[in-house]
Design a protein around this nucleic acid. Structure first.
Lengths: 134, 134
DNA sequence: TCTTAAATAGGATTTATTCCTATTTAAGTT
DNA sequence: AACTTAAATAGGAATAAATCCTATTTAAGA
């Protein structure tokens, strides 16, 4: 993935095999937790250390390349940072979907109501996905 | 707190000192993490065991008496379950505020956009609170 | 190819959470 | 007020999760 090499370079981070494998893995799953990343990578890189995984996850988050995704009643997951969006968690199949919906009116209502200056919002919804309803 | 005795009784849970202390503590703080609960209770009940604390938190969540509060870049916190609301986290003073704002239009937009049937929503916003702005 | 700062491996350590079971207790009953 | 019993606790052991440490390896620029 050339794309991730550029992303890493932009933050002066070396493009190690481990890092690229982590980013690749998270990208292909969309949303995934630490253990699943490890299980997915270790067959390809048997020497991959959990310390390396944890360290990289934390580093990549602080460089805003990854973002944590906190879902109700679920282990913490991670995703490639992208434009703001809402997460939908299907409580039947545990699939996580991204949805892009205008949130400005809500943010404005909250600002008005609270006096907070909002910088970020994290919105998760629980429910049943289209497939599980069928 | 008679209120919590009734709540526990309604779920056929015994009103132990430990449980009441836990509920009291969470109620008075509004939002608080496990370790802070422990530190707060142990001076009053030196025999309080961490196992008891963890077990009770989990039990009270499964009886819908408590709810987990997942905030970005923060340890998991807990609150007394109440009517749905939005959480505001001040990134300066780490205070957590509740705000009650109409979310129906957003939920409808998401339903329309995704085909999900939404059952619950968890909304957190980051920003600067009124006091920290001053 | 050489150099060097950055990154990794993997075991040790620390921290977080759950498990186990003998003892205690809440609360209903007599 | 004492009796009974199922539920709950204490606290140490076990397990799991995350971080730390440092000798070795590696990416990448010269």
């Amino acid at each position: 993935m050339e794309r991730f090499k550029d992303v890493l370079k932009a933050s002066n981070l070396k493009s190690t095999h481990q890092r690229l494998a982590i980013l690749d893995c998270i990208d292909s799953f969309g949303h995934i937790d630490i253990d699943a990343i490890y299980e997915h990578i270790v067959p390809k890189y048997p020497s991959m250390s959990k310390a390396t995984l944890y360290r990289n996850i934390n580093d990549l988050i602080s460089f805003h390349i990854l973002e944590e995704v906190k879902l109700p009643n679920q282990k913490q997951q991670y995703e490639i940072k992208k434009v703001p969006h809402i997460h939908l968690l299907c409580t039947h199949c545990s699939k996580v979907e991204d949805v892009f919906v205008e949130t400005k009116p809500l943010l404005e209502a909250v600002t008005l109501n609270s006096g907070f200056t909002i910088s970020n919002s994290f919105i998760v919804m629980n429910g049943t996905c289209k497939e599980c309803k069928a």
